[in-house]
């Protein structure tokens, strides 16, 4: 059985915002990957950014500098 580990999950207000986040992170070599929004957060459909928990500060700083707004930021066992 797969082992669950804590992960940082960042959600956005729209799908296009999440796709933009992916392009931004790839361009700036920032850690993480796109995932479907986990069911723990919402039963709805959406995309989120998953990253190691220790990348929180780096990511929030980069997003703030670039003017990327996020909706929610949580640590989940995934």
């Amino acid at each position: 059985m797969r082992q669950k580990k804590p992960a940082l999950v960042i959600t956005f207000s729209s799908t296009t915002a999440a796709i933009r986040m992916e392009a931004f992170c790839l361009e700036h070599n920032l850690p993480g990957r796109m995932i479907p929004v986990p069911r723990e957060i919402t039963a709805g459909c959406g995309l989120a950014w998953k990253a190691p928990t220790d990348a929180q500060e780096q990511l929030t700083q980069s997003m703030t500098q670039a003017g990327i707004q996020w909706e929610d930021l949580r640590i989940l066992e995934l």
């Binding site: 799908t15 999440a18 796709i19 992916e22 990957r33 796109m34 995932i35 479907p36 995309l47």
Partner: peptide, 9 residues
């Protein structure tokens, strides 16, 4: 993006 999400899920 959806396919990436599907394989992850």
């Amino acid at each position: 993006a959806l396919m990436k999400g599907f394989v992850y899920a």
